[in-house]
Amino acid sequence: MDWEVIFRNAILAGISREAAVYAIAAVGLNVHFGYTGLLNFGQVGFMSISAYGVGISITQYGAPVWLAFIIGLLAAVFLALLLGVPTLRLRADYLAIVTIAASEIIRLTFRSVALTDWSGGSNGINGFADGFYVWNPFDPSVAYGFGSVKVFGNQAYIIIVGWTLAVLVTLLVWLLMRSPWGRVLKSIREDEDAARALGKNAYWYKMQSLILGGVLGGLAGIVLSVGQSTVQPDVYSPPVTFFIWTALILGGVGRIWSPIFGAVAFWMILSLANNVLDQATQAGIVPAAVTAGVRGGSIRFMIVGLGLMLLMAFRPQGVFGDRNEMMLADR
């Protein structure tokens, strides 16, 4: 077995733009669920509406890149308002139902045949990201990195942008959560009626939380689409939401650094499972019939799933979480 390949790929997966995207989206989800107690099962909906916001405003209306990014983020604000106005006065479960449905509605709308001229149907929108790579300080044809861990210029560029944003939004959330504003969010998570009895407008705070987390989801979607230079509807399908949840829970819900840690860990574990399986098959340790064809991919998710089940059984609070604190919630 070639351990060097295994570890190199794991590191590449851990620092990949996908990991950065998941980290940013998980920061948003952490604002929703970890700090406010909002159940958002449609984070990918925020990602896609912003990605399409950027893609459509550039290809259809010729907007400059910076304006397109702002439009993309405003689209996420719009979605948060749309989802929040009817549901945030109701119990938490209603938001969960509405968000998961909305994320699918958005995907199916953008990929619909009737809107092909506008949103590109199932092929999505391509070639709108050139304006972003104009600012790329790296040479696209040169591989950058250290040792054997190397990526080409465009990749290096998006990775650096992605992780910078991930750290910045984490700091933003840290600033907010140490403030009285964050205290109100946490009080709503614990007991909304208590907060209201103390004069806090719980509805408005939940709305602010939904918008903030949604915009962070949108930012993640923009990074992803720009990184891939394309926005395709089926990239933004429900499993992405649940992978982001996985990353968040892996790190520990309601902790500042857990989204970044969780996203890195999630992609590394996925890569490790894949490459170990690959290498073991090549080395004859695992019979080739087991991992042939599509089975390999399925087995890797089974291994990851098993790992997550063990984590939930033995460390339900995630890596950074506090078990005692978590148990209090059930009392």
Partner: peptide, 16 residues
Amino acid sequence: TKSLTRLPVIENMKLG
């Protein structure tokens, strides 16, 4: 009673 269980006592107070 609606105490905010996962906030420290002092934070409960300051919220008021």
